[in-house]
Write a protein that binds this DNA or RNA. Structure first.
Lengths: 222, 222, 222, 222
DNA sequence: TATGAATGAGACTTCATTCAT
DNA sequence: TATGAATGAAGTCTCATTCAT
């Protein structure tokens, strides 16, 4: 476990219009450099330069490089959650299998929002000690998904919803993440459909009562 | 360093006994420091010191810091694969559901071999540009698993084995990895069993034909 | 900064009431930060903040950080001189021994006016190139003291008054400074008296003719 | 009081001949730059350059700039103490007045060993937090002097030797320091003698019993 | 072959000061 | 006149790597 954990809370809220611009430019530049050069080569000086701003200004708003990266993570997570939240809302009324399929598709879409950035963040973030950020995202996703399951309880087999949510969220994330980042060939036009089918089958099969077993299931909880 | 990709092949095969010892000490020291201090603080000088060797000697055997880390990864992967391979051999003759269960348990065990090291490697390695190493491990696991599926084809529903192997390997890895590294509470004596049950159900349900589908299947569960 | 010697004269005479307040706040804030954080950490930005004023305003009144410190020194010296001057006036008519005693006590009191600030100024100021300020203070004290000796000439042994003033002022300053700043235990209620006795003896014995005059002296060593 | 106090203990003892040379060069260069440019402009990079060594090497042996300065102080103090110790030994057998005179002369000589360096150290040291070094020196001097007084007790008036030592050491130091550093005109060939006379008179008069008063003094303690 | 002293590019960060608003 | 955002030179320090002994 890396020892020194740098402070990562922004230093001051940009109040004036001018500083708002500076701050945005910094976060944007950080994201760009992270993608282009990776975490190590993205020095604060380079970031400032890329943002068209002096290092001094950078440190006026962010106390360290990790704080900047944390800001990028936050922004990215916010975008992801927006997509996920929208999808879950849209899907709330659908039967579970259709819903799951839609969620898988959404997860893929989410990973495709900015795949390069997503990759860098996924790979380089652990170092920044910003794992909590990712954890927070997962927790949010997890909660939303558990709520979703809850409102579909009557379609499900008997199962601990917490646990089921964990299994589902983890699997969806892993499958879509790996497919998008390491197996992009799987997302060719022909293949993508199949992958979605399989993932849907995996999860729907897991969540729903076994066929022919429905009666028994119902009885158990009657 | 995203750009500069240092040479990572060991410099010479430690032929003599003395060299063997030195090399081992270096890899061992690297692993220890990786765990204790994290990638960034594990400098080559410190590694050499920890190994009781001079920096000069370190560079005699490894051309760069990343080469050392790569060696640690290799060693770790070798251990993992050994466990996985053994499990798959042991499981070859079992019916698919039992087999899957055993593989899940094994995956958890594998992650527990040296969880701290596993974590560091998983989290900090992307930076070393040694991702191929991880990829290689996954590929190996993937191939073994596909072969396993192949030899159990008659128990499976009709499915692209490549794809199924991808889905299974990715899911098992993600579930056990996350459980061990981020949700250790799930592995308490009471919970572990349940987690294994769920993971097994997920995969077995995915691989096997739906009930009411294949006649034999129906019989088995009737 | 040995080389670059910044301008240190205040920029404008704070004529208006509002300016007066600002200037005071700045000097006061500087003194406070000097005491609290030391010279190095007392940045102009922090001083401005502490004074409840913008950096811009700070530079409206003082052209540099050293100018601010110089202002603090001046203020402090003014206070010291006031004490010293008062004491010398009060003492003018006393016999030399009584007078000296009173001056020693006064010197201690002066050092106790704001010992923390005095310490910082004494210790950190050499750097500011404001040594002249200190020199000026000593010069003033020296002149006052020489005048004092002059008006007591008939009580003194034959001696170069310039030289005697130098010896006395330097000794008083050193003894009281060291006692207050580095040997505060010497100023406990019981000890303080003794210290004053000794210092008085030192100086009075030095200034006054030996008892019995020279003849007896010869005898002692015959 | 400045907050962060940098570590100032040397990092490793130079074992090999080569490093011995490096270390010496560093300390020497530090002293030189301190004299030439003052503390602030003597950056570690400049020091290393002046020493004909890389910054890396500098940090191999000294963890900070202050550590380097501390080393210079130590060296300087060692030299001073040598002079003082020698003088006190030489003087042990002399009657008090002669002894004091010799000590005053020695103090002046000591300040002249390397006056520029002495001045910088005296003025800039407080910032390095190495005041203890100076304190230590004074303590050593103080102890030696008290011992000296002790062995001359029968020549002295009744007095607390601790206190007397404090008064004498502080006065000698202040007079010679000020004379050498701020009043060099006092040390011209004609004046120097006079200054020594006065200082001697100050101290001898202070330490020795008043003439004609010896009887009374003896009585008090009989 | 081993040693460990030396290297030096480059990372992070601060802070006195300016200037557009 | 006040504000505070912006500047950027400069300082401290680390660490992978080399090479003379």
């Amino acid at each position: 476990m890396a020892a020194r954990r740098p402070i990562t809370t922004p230093r001051k809220q940009a109040s004036q219009e001018r500083s708002r611009v500076t701050v945005d430019a910094l976060v944007e530049a950080t994201a760009r450099l992270l993608v282009r050069d990776g975490f190590d080569k993205a020095s604060t000086n380079r970031i400032a330069q890329e943002a068209g701003v002096s290092v001094g200004s950078l440190y006026q708003y962010y106390p360290s490089k990790e704080a900047l990266v944390a800001a990028v993570i936050d922004r990215h997570n916010r975008e992801l959650m927006q997509v996920v939240r929208a999808a879950l809302a849209e899907v709330a009324a659908l039967p579970i299998e259709k819903a799951v399929r839609k969620l898988v598709v959404t997860a893929i879409d989410a990973h495709r929002l900015d795949p390069k950035l997503h990759r860098v963040l996924a790979e380089q973030i652990p170092r920044t000690g910003r794992l909590e950020k990712v954890a927070a995202f997962n927790r949010d996703y997890f909660i939303l998904f558990r709520d979703f399951l809850e409102s579909h309880r009557d379609e499900l087999r008997a199962v601990d919803l917490e646990l089921a949510a964990f299994v589902c969220v983890t699997s969806i994330e892993a499958l879509t993440h790996t497919a998008v980042l390491h197996r992009s060939e799987m997302l060719s036009d022909e293949m993508a459909e199949t992958l979605v089918d399989e993932a849907t089958r995996l999860l729907a099969g897991y969540l729903m009562p076994r066929e022919g077993g429905r009666t028994r299931q119902l009885r158990r909880y009657s």
